[in-house]
Design a protein around this nucleic acid. Structure first.
Ligand SMILES: [Mn+2]
Ligand SMILES: [Mn+2]
Ligand SMILES: [Mn+2]
Ligand SMILES: [Mn+2]
Lengths: 218, 218
DNA sequence: TTTTATTTTTAAGCATGCTTAAATTATTTA
DNA sequence: TAAATAATTTAAGCATGCTTAAAAATAAAA
C-alpha cells in the first residue's frame, strides 16, 4: 500500500471500533480532522482495496486484511514511541507526535530490529499494549478513569492518553507517571474537580484531566 | 515546508550542482526518475517559494534559503544512516533506502538528539560528510575512483557510492569497506576490468564497480 | 552558417485527498 | 406516526505531482 492517508484511516478505525468492530464515519472525521465528505470518499477507496466492508449509510468494519494492516500500524507507532523514549531519551509527551510521522516511513525490518533492541516491550510509554509481529495484543489490566474514583480511594496509574502533549507535560509536573500511586482526598460536585495526593503532595485537578488518567482496578 | 517531493528535489539539486552551483533540469529528472515536464513544473514552484533562482531555458541555482534547506536534508539523511548502522545494527547496504524515507519524517529535535547520541559523527557509513547544525561540511580527503588507479598502485577506501544496495552487498562480500586497503594487480584494456587484492585475496572487478569505490590520494 | 539533434517548456489530462454546499437517508423527539 | 434533527453521501471544485505528446529554444554537427 504505502499511503499515509489510508494508513491513518485504518489506524483510527482500528483504535475506535466498538465491541462489534463497528465505527461511525462521524468519529473518523473527528479523529482525523477532515470533513465527513472526505471520509466517505476514502471509505469507498478502502472498501475497493479490500480493507473494509462498507455499505453506504450502513456500518463500517475492517476486513481481516484491514485489521491486520491496522494492527501493524499500531504496532509500528508504539514501538517507535518506546524506542524514542527509552533509547533516544525523548520525553513521553513528545514521542506520540514524532511516532505519528515515523510510523509511515519505516520498513518492517527496521521495526523488528527496534523491537529486538528493546527486548520485546509489551507496553508503550503511556501504558498502551504493543501488538506482536504475530498479531497478539498483550492484555491490559482492568482499569478505570481517575475521574471515577471516589473520595478516599487510591490506586496505581497504568495508562494515560497520549495524544495531547500539553496534558502529558502538565501531569508530569504533578509527578504523575506510570506505576505512580494517586489518592483521592476530596471531590467537588460543582465542577467535578478533585484534590489528589501524588508523592505526598496535594494537587487540585480538573475533571477533564482526571478522565485521561487510568487507574488499575484491584 | 514539509513536502516530501520538494525536499527530494532540493536534495538532488544540492548534491548534483556543479562548481558554479548550477544544474541541468535533465539531471534532476534522471535522479528522481520523473519526466522533464514534471521537473519544469516543480522548478516553477520552488522558484515561487524562494528556494531557487530559475529562468526558463536558463540555469537553475539554489538561493541561500534553498541551500540551507537542502543541506539540512542531507544532514538528516546521513545522520539517520549512521544511526541505523551503528545503533540499530543495520548493514550499510540497507541504510540509504531506509534513510530516504526517515529523512522526511523527523523533527529537527530528533535529528539533534540522534547526533548527540552518536557523538557528532563527521561521516556517514559510506564516507560522505555530515553537515553540522550550523551548516559546516567536514572536508573530505582528496580521493579518486578506484577505476583510475594504475597497475601496481594501491590505497585506502575512503568513500563508496551508497545508492545501490546490490553494489554495496557485493563489495562487502569482497571484503571492501571504509579504510580497507586495495591493491591493483592488473588492468585489462579491453573491458577495463581489474584484478585487485583485498585482505590478501585476489578478485576480478568490473570497471563499473571500480568507478563507485573511492581511494584516498596520498 | 545552416541543418540536425538535444534539451526544455507548454498543453492537456489523470489520480489523490481534500474542501463547501446541497441532497439524501437515518434517527430522535414530540 | 409525523416532524425535526443528525448523520451521511453526492456534487462540484481546488491543489499537488505526476504523465504523454507537441512546440519552442538551445546546442552541436555538417
Ligand atoms: Mn501514541
Ligand atoms: Mn502511546
Ligand atoms: Mn544515502
Ligand atoms: Mn550514505
Amino acid at each position: 500500500m504505502k499511503n499515509i492517508s489510508k494508513e491513518d484511516y485504518l489506524s483510527v478505525i482500528f483504535k475506535n471500533q466498538n465491541s462489534n468492530g463497528e465505527i461511525k464515519s462521524n468519529i473518523i472525521a473527528g479523529k482525523l480532522s477532515v470533513s465527513n465528505a472526505a471520509v466517505t470518499d476514502m471509505l469507498k477507496k478502502l472498501s475497493k482495496d479490500g480493507y473494509i466492508i462498507y455499505e453506504r449509510y450502513k456500518g463500517i468494519k475492517l476486513t481481516v486484511d484491514g485489521e491486520n494492516y491496522a494492527r501493524n500500524m499500531v504496532r509500528r507507532h508504539r514501538i517507535w514511541e518506546v524506542f524514542l523514549n527509552q533509547i533516544v531519551g525523548m520525553p513521553w509527551e513528545k514521542v506520540h507526535e514524532e511516532a505519528n510521522k515515523l510510523e509511515h516511513s519505516s520498513s518492517d525490518d527496521l521495526i523488528n530490529r527496534l523491537e529486538t533492541m528493546l527486548d520485546y516491550p509489551e507496553y508503550d510509554p503511556h501504558g498502551d499494549p504493543i501488538p506482536t509481529k504475530e498479531g497478539k495484543i498483550p492484555k491490559l489490566k482492568k482499569h478505570r478513569p481517575l475521574s471515577e474514583l471516589k473520595e478516599g480511594e487510591s490506586g496505581k496509574v497504568i495508562r494515560v492518553n497520549d495524544f495531547d502533549e500539553k496534558f502529558l507535560g502538565y501531569i508530569s509536573e504533578l509527578g504523575i507517571k506510570l506505576q505512580e500511586k494517586i489518592s483521592v482526598k476530596q471531590k467537588r460536585a460543582f465542577d467535578k474537580s478533585m484534590e489528589v495526593v501524588v508523592k505526598g503532595k496535594l494537587w487540585n485537578i480538573s475533571n477533564k484531566l482526571a478522565q485521561n488518567v487510568f487507574i488499575e482496578v484491584k
